[in-house]
């Protein structure tokens, strides 16, 4: 048979997606390496005040410029990212664990327990969670852990909903019927069929929550309720840049803000790729 000439369809869409995923992966890797390696390797004091060099524009010596007491902003941003990421990851894990447990328990037991739990979830969801978060941090003295607790305790609600509805939908699948008919115990159905179906969703929710938690940390710190101002986090950096910004010095605001946006986009990009992998779609791509 003669060689055919083949035309591709939709190639462009596919490659831009691939590049977005690669870009996100590289960015996340750079951020993680930076916050893990820079502090121990560089051995510079991010708190080092240099009043002779305050509010310097970005230059080779200070790529991100310096703040109003002459601290290097690049170094402050790396330390800030470190704290913000730590808060974000721990808070997301806390929220996911609570949410998964509550959602799975509600779905598994059903009946009045399910109804009561979900009404409680609805109740808490009706209060803006920043407000709730403020209420919680206000009970402690400023520091990393109150912020983690505050963000964690206010963000499990959506995960609980996702997990509950996922368990309910999986439980009504015919393959669970088939497992029951095959003699599988409750435990076996839960461990072998339900949990593996829910965990990726919960994991995805956790990853998507990391940037969300970072923004919450920033919001709390910006309001002066989160971390103490001397402790660099993306939120405290932006907060302490308000003064210089009013005087027309833009860099102390821009760079921490950019760090926040870039970290958010990169993590969300990776999570998006993961979401697409979650559902095996190769078959549907072939449409057979």
């Amino acid at each position: 048979m003669a060689e055919l000439t083949w035309k591709s369809t939709g190639d462009r869409r596919r490659s831009t997606r691939a590049w977005r995923v690669r870009g996100s992966a590289v960015t996340v890797a750079v951020i993680v390496l930076a916050v893990l390696l820079v502090p121990p390797l560089v051995q510079l004091d991010e708190q080092a005040v240099d009043l002779a060099a305050k509010l310097r524009q970005p230059s080779l010596a200070h790529p991100f410029g310096t703040d109003d007491v002459g601290r290097d902003l690049l170094l402050r941003c790396v330390y800030g990212l470190r704290v913000s990421l730590l808060v974000g990851v721990v808070a997301a894990v806390v929220a996911t664990v609570i949410g998964t447990a509550v959602g799975a328990a509600a779905a598994a037991s059903g009946g009045w327990f399910d109804r009561v739990v979900m009404r409680v979830v609805d109740l808490f969801s009706s209060v803006p969670h920043l407000l709730l978060g403020i209420f919680i941090v206000a009970m402690f003295s400023p520091g990393v852990w109150p912020v983690v607790v505050s963000v964690g305790l206010t963000h499990w609600l959506s995960t609980a909903r996702i997990v509950r509805s996922e368990v309910l939908s999986l439980r009504s699948r015919p393959y669970v019927d088939a497992a029951i008919s095959g003699g599988a115990s409750r435990l076996r159905v839960a461990v072998r069929h339900l949990l593996p179906g829910v965990l990726p969703q919960a994991g995805l929710a956790a990853v998507l929550m990391v940037p969300h938690a970072i923004w919450h940390e920033s919001a709390l710190s910006f309001l002066g309720l989160g971390l103490p101002t001397h402790q660099a986090s993306l939120g405290t950096l932006v907060q302490s840049s308000r003064g210089p910004l009013l005087a027309g010095d833009w860099w102390p605001t821009l760079f921490p803000g950019l760090c926040m946006v870039i970290a958010t986009l990169a993590i969300a990009g990776l999570a998006g790729a993961w979401r697409e992998r979650l559902n095996p779609r190769r078959r549907s791509e072939l449409m057979l």
Partner: peptide
């Protein structure tokens, strides 16, 4: 069952 896709984990 009717739909093998839904009947298989």
């Amino acid at each position: 069952f009717q739909q093998p896709r839904l009947s298989a984990d």
